[in-house]
């Protein structure tokens, strides 16, 4: 069965979607990524969609799902390289992908992930930006 490869680089996972995905392939990627985050303890996921010539509601939903699931697994997701024609079409289709972090290119995406990590490391228990998981409950977490 064909799969989209997931590369590990330190505490980040990198995915570059280079094929015209059928729905099952998108679902498999979603499953593979979440289990890989769990297995490796990755703290960030970068998804490169610069080769995607189309994002429809199904692929859009997959992107939103990955972003939401990875957040629950304590990793940030950034989607990079969306082609302008794809962005225009997505918005007209009615999908603005709220809650999904986008970056113009891989460099900016990596910078975002590193900044998220630096903020988490630096602020530690006082970081109240994610009060749902990182605030008051932090002190009771078993490390």
């Amino acid at each position: 069965m064909d799969r989209i490869p997931i590369l590990r680089m330190g505490e980040f996972l990198l995915v570059s979607i280079q094929v015209d995905m059928h729905d099952q392939l998108a679902m498999t990627l979603q499953d593979d990524l979440t289990s890989m985050i769990e297995r490796t303890g990755a703290r960030g996921v970068l998804i490169d969609i610069s080769a995607l010539e189309m994002v429809d509601s199904f692929i859009g939903r997959m992107i939103a799902n990955i972003s939401g699931m990875s957040r629950i697994l304590d990793a940030h997701t950034v989607v990079v390289g969306m082609q302008p024609a794809v962005a225009i079409t997505l918005v007209e289709l009615g999908l603005s992908l709220p809650g999904v972090k986008m970056a113009l290119n891989i460099e900016k995406g990596m910078a975002y992930l590193r900044a998220q990590r630096a903020a988490e490391e630096g602020d530690g228990p006082n970081d109240l930006r994610y009060s749902d998981d990182g605030g008051a409950g932090y002190g009771t977490r078993q490390e």
Binding site: E53, M54, Q83, P84, A85, V86, I88, E92, L93
Partner: peptide
């Protein structure tokens, strides 16, 4: 853009 819209 029109190609992308029609394909989508």
């Amino acid at each position: 853009v029109d190609q992308t819209k029609m394909v989508t």
